[in-house]
Structure formats: C-alpha cells, structure tokens
Design a protein around this nucleic acid. Structure first.
Lengths: 127, 127
DNA sequence: GCGTTTTTGACAATCATTATCGTCTTCGCG
DNA sequence: CGCGAAGACGATAATGATTGTCAAAAACGC
C-alpha cells in the first residue's frame, strides 16, 4: 500500500495546519467546501483516520459523541475542556506521561498510548 | 424531580452489582431479558445514564464506539486496556488525581472531573 | 502516453443512542 | 385502602455520525 499525494489529502493537511483548536470531521468538510475545494465527506473521514493512525493529529471523543480532530504539533499534551462553552486549554504533564508508561510496563503491556481529558467549568462560565 | 424506586431500576443495579467488568447498554439489556426481566432498551439507557450522572457507575468510551458501563465501587480509578483482546486492568493513580485537580484549579476551572485511559498490547496478545 | 494501482466520492447501509408520547406505576395523603 | 398527580416505562420512530460499496477518476512508474 503506497500512500499517494492527492489534492484532497493536501487540502485537509493544509486546513488543519492553519485552524486553531478541535474540529469535527463534518466541520472540516464544510470549511473545505466553503473555500471552494471539491472534496467528499467520505474522503475527509478517510484522510483524518489516516492522519490519526500516523500519529499526525489528535483525536478526542467528547461526551457529545462527535470525534474531534486537531493537528498535534508540539509533542504530547492533554486538554482541559470547559463543560459549558467548550473552550479548551492545553496542558502538559510530563509526570503523567511517565506514570502511564510505567504502570503499563508493570503489567507487561507494550505499544502504550493513553488519553487524558480534564473536564470542568471555566471561570467565565461559572454561574 | 423525585427519583422513584422501580422494579426495572433495581434490576439494573442488581445486575451491575454481580457482573464483572464492562458491559454495553445493549449487553446489559440482553442479560436482563435472558433472566426473564421485562424491561425496555430505552429504560436501560435511561437508568444507566442516571446512575452515571449520580456517579455510581463508570462510563468508558472505547474507540469502538459503544459506551461501556461498570459498577464503580471502590473509589476512583482508571483503566489499562488491551487493544487486541479488550482485557482491562484497573489502575489507581493518586498522583494523577491531584495533578489533574491542581492543573484545573490553576486555570480557574471548577467542578473538575477527568478521564484517563491507557491503551496497549497485553503480554498474551503480543505477537 | 500507458497500464496498473490507489483514491475518490455519491449514495446507501449501519448502528448505537435519543426523542416521542400514550400507558402504566409509584407514592404521598386523606 | 383508594385517589390523583408526578414520574417512569417502553414500543417505535427518528437522529446522525460513521462506515461500506463500487464505478469512475487520478497518480505514479516506466
């Protein structure tokens, strides 16, 4: 299976490179259509899945049900998400990374990855 | 909104009390029907949602897409999940709990909760 | 160019979850 | 014990994101 360079794949990558924050597949698809790209929803899903498998983007599964994708640039980090307004703050936790790896190793697990999300109510949304 | 005790609610709680590990809503519904309970799928979903809101059970959202529920007995813990066979190991990380709360507080977030899952390949599934 | 192989994308299918809404229970109170 | 209203139930339909299908189009090596 040789990966080929196509206009659509580039478009998705380019879009992810310039937008901030998380976006759903449908979001990204709509944006691409708005800027005149001719690309199918199916292709957006496939491309995002590919990028996620390759570790080039982050995937988040919020309680809402939609998958959110985001360019995962500088290393590994986690997210602090506001329950009310959806605002996200990046947080880094080196201690958590090593802890997770160590715990997994203790149980003999290999190829370890992890997801961590913190939910709360942000200052501006507090009643 | 007064919560009432119904046969169905008790049945779900009872089932969760005796089964091990995670089960999907549809799983639990099937089990209840098998043991002769007359209960609708809708009710199972509603009951599970209620229990989850009340913090009495754990919810996990694996990449597969189904929500998995589990009685969350002894305090807060996280899970180490095998990618291949789905086996789960409970892990506790007091340090992570406090870290998450602290980070959230630093950003002014309140009502903080978090989810953490570690994925890997368990020893028996390693090629 | 040419042929092969991958990718695309419109459309249909899937499937867990949620909404609807009429009927049935529960429970406080007399 | 019986009543009445507030909830709860549950069959069914609806929702909606994601995935499968497959013929047509594009990309790459030569």
């Amino acid at each position: 299976m040789i990966v080929r360079n196509t206009r659509q794949r580039s478009a998705v990558s380019a879009l992810l490179a310039e937008v901030e924050g998380f976006h759903s597949a449908q979001d990204l698809h709509a944006m691409l259509r708005n800027r005149g790209e001719r690309i199918g929803l199916t292709t957006v899903y496939r491309t995002l899945q590919g990028l996620a498998d390759a570790g080039e983007i982050d995937v988040m599964r919020p309680p809402g049900g939609e998958h959110l994708y985001r360019r995962c640039s500088e290393g590994h980090h986690h997210h602090l998400v506001c329950r009310a307004c959806g605002r996200t703050v990046e947080v880094a936790g080196p201690a958590v990374e090593t802890w997770a790896d160590r715990v997994a190793a203790q149980h003999g697990f290999t190829d370890v990855s992890h997801t961590l999300e913190i939910f709360g109510t942000c200052p501006t949304c507090a009643p």
